[in-house]
């Protein structure tokens, strides 16, 4: 169900943005826009499909623990 909501959200957002912004900007901006949307769509879909994605918070905590003086 959440996957449906996520897909619907992205569809609605891109449709809305298409009219308002995307046909008025340059190609590079479109590329950046779509790639960012793609990354977030993938993360959200994978997360809701119960695929475990490594969390940056864990990575940060492990990196900090490796430094001296922080436990």
């Amino acid at each position: 169900m959440l996957i449906g909501i996520v897909l619907f959200l992205f569809l609605a957002v891109i449709l809305y943005d298409y009219n308002v912004y995307l046909n008025k900007v340059r190609v590079q901006e479109k590329v950046v826009y779509y790639s960012l949307m793609l990354i977030s769509l993938c993360i959200l879909l994978l997360q809701n499909a119960n695929v475990s994605i490594p969390s940056p918070a864990e990575a940060i905590i492990n990196a900090l623990r490796a430094l001296p003086g922080i436990q």
Binding site: V13, D17, V32, L41
Partner: peptide, 18 residues
């Protein structure tokens, strides 16, 4: 134009952070 994709990125990040 980039506010929305950045927002979606923040949304994706918030769902995997904790």
């Amino acid at each position: 134009v980039f506010i929305m994709p950045v927002g979606m990125l923040a949304l994706a990040l918030s769902s995997i952070l904790y």
